[in-house]
Write a protein that binds this DNA or RNA. Sequence first.
DNA 1: TGGGCAAGGATCGTATACAATTTACCTGCC
DNA 2: GGCAGGTAAATTGTATACGATCCTTGCCCA
Lengths: 228, 228
Amino acid sequence: MPSARAQPMTAELIASQLMEAVHEHRIQPGMKLSEDEVGEIFGAGRTVVRQALRALAHEGIVCIERNRGAFVAKPTVKEAREVFEARALLEPRLARAAAQRTTEADMARLEAHIAEEHAALAAGESGLALKLSGHFHVEIAVIADQATIEAFIRQLVSRSSLVIALYWRRRNAMCESHAHHALLEALRRHDDDAAEELMNGHLLDLVSQLDLRPQSDPPASLRDALIT
Amino acid sequence: MPSARAQPMTAELIASQLMEAVHEHRIQPGMKLSEDEVGEIFGAGRTVVRQALRALAHEGIVCIERNRGAFVAKPTVKEAREVFEARALLEPRLARAAAQRTTEADMARLEAHIAEEHAALAAGESGLALKLSGHFHVEIAVIADQATIEAFIRQLVSRSSLVIALYWRRRNAMCESHAHHALLEALRRHDDDAAEELMNGHLLDLVSQLDLRPQSDPPASLRDALIT
DNA sequence: TGGGCAAGGATCGTATACAATTTACCTGCC
DNA sequence: GGCAGGTAAATTGTATACGATCCTTGCCCA
């Protein structure tokens, strides 16, 4: 439990902590987020927790049902497709823009980032690796200096994390490191064509590893789950 | 004052009413949105108003300063550019997708929409015309059946409304009707290439009518503003 | 024995009250 | 007369309390 009682614990802090937990797959889709429970964990009042939950709900990370409470969202297959279609529209051309602007400092940051990613993967910390892997895409938006799109990417990456938790085919760690590394090299060369195409292919790879067949959309009926 | 006291007035209602007022340029960038004031206007408690304001703040329509209150956002030139760059990434390819899916019912809705637009323009209701003009772009996302991107477009259109309020060159009504009409025809023919290109050009046209020269960006630094 | 019903508990939604911070004004001094 | 300091009003941030809704579970009756 990564909670620090001493801090003031503002709503944004709680939201980002919860978001991080989602990114690391420490909390899973469908899990209930009781206001009292979350409040006690973070040592905050219900008012602040509510703000955090509502903010997350606004981003599609959390689903609030009236008089029922907040739950971690469970994206349907349609939503999952939409998330990656949105990413397919934004990220390739964002990578192109980033390639034209990448500085030395950016490169250093990205290299450190990928190093962390590798280390986490090597250490078997798949949750941490997943989080870093997602954040890599946010870094591209930062380099492109597009704050507005960056916010969209943040949201899409977060929701992708939920999609992956639900629909990922293989249980083993993801082998994305190559893709990110190749992108890094394209950015270093300021090769915007390559960057755009690499990002495009990378996203297609990601989607292809998801199991988005329509039948798995409603987690089957309860009957199917128990009859077998 | 389009307020109905009798209704329960939930947070979403207040937010959408405020949003509509922004779209119609009835409330302008920088205007203060006092919690008490808004609450009294809509006949709602501060709690509900706070939720609405925070939701709008999350979308960049409103800017909340700690212990100071909520103000209608005043996008900087950089933000203005970013908003339209994001739209340029999303909307053309969204129009393409829409063109492939447009149904008869969609066409009817769009035609009615454009008719309203014309009527408003003819009646000199520039605020209403502006709102409808923006909503046209949302309709494209609806037709494309992309709820996720639709949410982004909604946000971008709202922020565009603020940008237009701040940086629009001409004071007279906008002559976008042609662009929307041409798009409509492309959708009817399921001509996705044309739809994409028309949308692209339409957005470029819009940006070209803005005065985004850098000097007006930060109301200069405070020092510059006072020394001169 | 199975289904319907009702009471209890728990959780969320909203309003109210209090604390913190900012802003404006006023007074006193230089 | 102008400026500094302090005090008071206003506004927001947060916590608490109350009311409403939903879920559970135990009971009763067919």
